Amino acid sequence: MNIKGSVVFVTGANRGLGLAFVHGLLAAGARKVYAGARDPATISIPGVQTIKLDITNPDEVLAAATIAADTNILINNAGILAPGAFLGENGAAASRRQLETNFFGTLAMAQAFAPVLHENGGGAMVNVLSVLSWLNLPPIGSYCASKAAAWALTNGLRNELRGNRTLVVAVHAAYIDTDMAKHVEGPKTSPEEVVRQTLEAIELGREEVLSDDITKKVKLELNAELPIYVREWSK
């Protein structure tokens, strides 16, 4: 499908990758962009319709789907990261909090907007995931688990929505140069490049985006005799 002339809803649109999606969509000729954020006042971009949205709030999710009933592309970008190992003091609480946003919040948006997309011809749903969908790093174990769950959700949604002619795109990235990764050492991909690849995938009908070399390497090595998710933490 074409980005030009489309109507797009972006969650977590007030900063980082979400904000880059808003700018990228406008530059690509989207007819309308809805920008969802917990505090809409933090978004001040001409031509964008802001919507108050906490994806863990069922009433706000349903209200957003009602307001944005002309949407034909949904970008599920909103997510949180809370450091903490599974066996740490706050392991269970951190896991619940991140699953509530990264999995259940994404599920709520999918449930609310799938009928909207279907009514408008099918369109596309994009779920922003992570290379950590396939790895688990001890300092952020619960975050990795939430992204693994979101990956499984994405695969399930893809199967359920194929009959509605809805393209479901999984976006996997390692470190993106945003506030979430500001303390991380190592190569980072610009949010604009992730957006560029994602919009290209939508237009070409691709179901997966591997946005950088690290992500491509990890995905490739999942089939190794000793997979990377075991090898890296068994030394």
Rank of each mutant, 00 (worst) to 15 (best):
K188W: 05
L87R: 02
W151N: 02
D179N: 11
S44R: 13
T198Y: 06
L62R: 14
L167I: 02
A82E: 13
A174Q: 01
A224V: 01
S142H: 07
L81F: 00
M180L: 15
S211V: 03
V33G: 10
R231D: 14
A224L: 09
A148G: 15
N77Y: 07
A92D: 02
W151I: 00
G24Y: 11
P83M: 12
R162H: 06
E100W: 04
D213L: 12
S234Y: 08
A13M: 07
K147N: 00
I43A: 10
N127I: 01
G12I: 09
G88T: 08
K52T: 14
S133Q: 04
T106E: 03
S146Y: 08
A94W: 00
I140S: 08
G123I: 02
A201Q: 05
L117Y: 01
Q49M: 08
P46C: 05
A27E: 14
Y34D: 03
M180A: 12
F103H: 15
W151R: 09
K219A: 10
A35F: 11
P46W: 10
L25T: 09
P227E: 10
G12Y: 09
L167S: 06
L129E: 00
Q111F: 00
E203F: 09
T50D: 08
N155K: 09
L26R: 14
N102F: 10
E100S: 13
A181M: 04
D70G: 12
Q49L: 14
A150G: 00
I67Y: 06
E160N: 12
Q111H: 10
P187I: 04
L25I: 07
G79P: 04
D179R: 13
L220A: 15
N155G: 08
D54T: 12
G105N: 06
M180V: 15
A35V: 06
I202P: 04
V169T: 11
A149I: 09
P191E: 10
G105I: 13
A174I: 01
T56D: 01
G163V: 07
A149T: 05
L220T: 12
A173F: 11
M180N: 05
D39T: 15
M109Y: 09
A65S: 15
L53I: 12
R165M: 04
A201R: 05
Y175I: 02
V48F: 10
R96D: 07
A35L: 12
T215W: 03
P138I: 00
G84S: 00
A82Q: 11
K188E: 00
R162S: 02
R231T: 06
E203K: 13
L25A: 05
G121S: 11
V131Q: 12
V116Q: 02
E232D: 13
S211D: 13
A27G: 06
E200S: 11
H172L: 12
